[in-house]
Computed example of a mutant assay.
Amino acid sequence: MIPVIEVGGTHVTAGLVDLTDGSVERRTHRKLDPHGRAEDILGAVCRCADALDTPAGTTWGMALPGPFDYARGIGLFRGVGKFEALYGVDVRAALVDGMARRPGGIAFLNDAHAFLLGECAVGAAIGHTRVVGITLGTGVGSTFVADGRILDHGPGVPPEGRMDLTSVDGGPLEESVSRRALVARYGERGIDVRDIAERARAGERTARRVLDEAFGTLGAVLGPRLATFEATALVVGGSMAGSWDLVAPALHTGLAKGGWTPDAADVNLRHPTRHTRAMRPAALAGDAALLGAARAVVARDGNRTGPGW
């Protein structure tokens, strides 16, 4: 069993991953204030990890968003609206010293990368060798995987593999597709994306237009890249993927306009061909990043264990 931690924009989750079957056991959760002090953020992470009661000397996997120096374990958060108190902080050292049972090491991995590696191993992208993953939440995370390797350059791949570094209509993509972008475009104070989704389902035209424009734009920007990358699957995760009934239609339309038309049905999902174009929501929900974080530990130790690993 490999202990892992996943840090999101407003939460932290820890669990034990069994790579023999891809299961996650003994999950623990804590809320996080992304605008809080460094000691408060790191303290919440330590308390969440301590609840698993793992032996001292154990190597942990940890998935968290960027910008972050994953090799050195140092926060680089600046101008992203979250965790800015961790800028320049040696997160690895703080966690090693702060956890009740001192770990032997921590292997860090980008949360979007961890998400897609988990989905490729035992989730929505099983059987696919060229896959793109998108996470939709406080920002837009992305991962391009070919034959099990994460790519940061190449045909169709954006700079550093990051769609958030691309632009649309002269501005950053996240000004069109993100939680803050949707709320700003809707224009009513005191509501969140969840409220906009509920209103769209209730038939409110403004709410539906805001969502359709955002996800249509995302599809139009992604489509040409997926076609050039020759992706056979697009897997969408993050908090907004929970409203797949609202995301999928506009995203499908945008992708088609961009030159990558998803299959009407995913009957070819587990037996993809060069012509397969499956668009799927995440199958593992929050477990995907935990599974991917365990993969980081496996890769660091030079071992491969379990199905898909």
Rank of each mutant, 00 (worst) to 15 (best):
R92E: 12
A49Q: 09
G61D: 07
D97A: 15
E84D: 14
G75L: 09
D40T: 14
F68K: 10
Y87K: 02
G36A: 15
C46F: 00
K31A: 15
G36N: 11
Y87L: 00
G104L: 02
V45T: 06
D33I: 01
V45E: 04
D50S: 03
V45K: 02
Y87T: 06
A63V: 02
G81M: 06
V80R: 11
H35I: 06
G88C: 06
A38S: 14
L52P: 10
V96Y: 01
G57D: 09
V91R: 04
K31P: 05
A100G: 06
D69H: 10
A71E: 15
R30W: 00
G79I: 13
T54V: 13
E84I: 03
F83L: 05
L64W: 02
L76K: 10
R101P: 00
E84Y: 04
R78G: 08
A93C: 09
T58S: 15
R101E: 09
F68A: 07
L52S: 09
K82H: 13
R37D: 03
H35T: 15
R37K: 13
D97F: 01
D90G: 09
L95S: 02
G43R: 00
V96G: 01
D97S: 12
G73E: 07
T28G: 11
V80I: 15
P55W: 13
G88W: 13
D90V: 09
Y70V: 10
I41T: 12
L52W: 11
V45P: 02
T58I: 08
W60I: 03
G43K: 01
T54D: 12
G43V: 02
A51F: 10
A63G: 13
D50M: 07
T59G: 00
F77N: 03
P55L: 15
L95V: 15
I74K: 09
E84T: 05
G81V: 13
M62V: 14
W60T: 08
R72I: 03
A56D: 12
C48Q: 02
M99K: 02
T28W: 15
A94L: 07
C48M: 08
G98N: 05
R72N: 09
A38Y: 10
R78Q: 13
P65M: 13
A93G: 11
L52Q: 05
R101N: 09
A44H: 12
A51Y: 06
A85P: 02
T28C: 11
H35E: 12
I74W: 11
A51N: 06
V45M: 15
G81A: 06
A51V: 08
A38Q: 10
H29W: 14
I41Q: 03
A63T: 03
G43M: 04
E39K: 05
T28N: 09
A71N: 07
G73L: 04
D90A: 12
T59N: 06
A56Y: 00
G61R: 08
L95P: 07
G73I: 00
R37T: 05
L76N: 08
R92L: 10
D40W: 05
I41R: 01
R78F: 06
V91T: 06
A85M: 06
D40C: 05
D97Q: 09
D40M: 04
